[in-house]
Amino acid sequence: MNISKKIVVLGHFGVGKTSLIRRFVENSFSNDYRVSIGVHILKKKVEVSVDETVSLIIWDLEGTDNIAAIRQSYLLGTHGVIYVFDVTRPITFQAIEEDLTALKSKVRNVPMKVVGNKLDMVVEEEVKKVLLENKISFDYLTSAKTGDKVNDLFEQLAKMLTLDAKQI
């Protein structure tokens, strides 16, 4: 069985959303920072079990520090969300609670994953401590550069989407 699911990847600019997607879809990485504007859409098939695949239609949204201002049209028909922050830049996760609340009011009842990216640039234990001190909960700490936990993130979300589909 193959199903298709739309997921949107969003967060502040420069947090590495495009890099995460490229690592997942093309298994590539570039150190150059090139701003994404509007939306770029990529697709990748994920095998979630022996006889089940999910085609993830991944919408890579332009980074913004105002999640509430994201165009509603980009979120139409969304099945899952990945919110990305940069573990090296506190400004990208300081208002995470407000961002997630705004997001949940725009995209209701869909699985959401919170991801701290650029783990390769810090000491994992120290980052976890800082995030804990700031009461920031997250699902994954990833590195688009090394690929650490990137596939886990997308595959886990894909599994959740198939479960959702079965429940429907």
């Binding site: 298709s4 504007i37 509007g38 859409i41 990529l42 697709k43 239609i57 139409l76």
Partner: peptide, 23 residues
């Protein structure tokens, strides 16, 4: 892939949707 599942993107009540800056 942008055009994937149009009917779901534009639900039954919606008559029009505008998408800016689609690469």
């Amino acid at each position: 892939p942008f055009f994937f599942n149009l009917s779901e993107v534009l639900n039954i009540e919606q008559e029009k949707a505008v998408f800016h800056c689609i690469q």
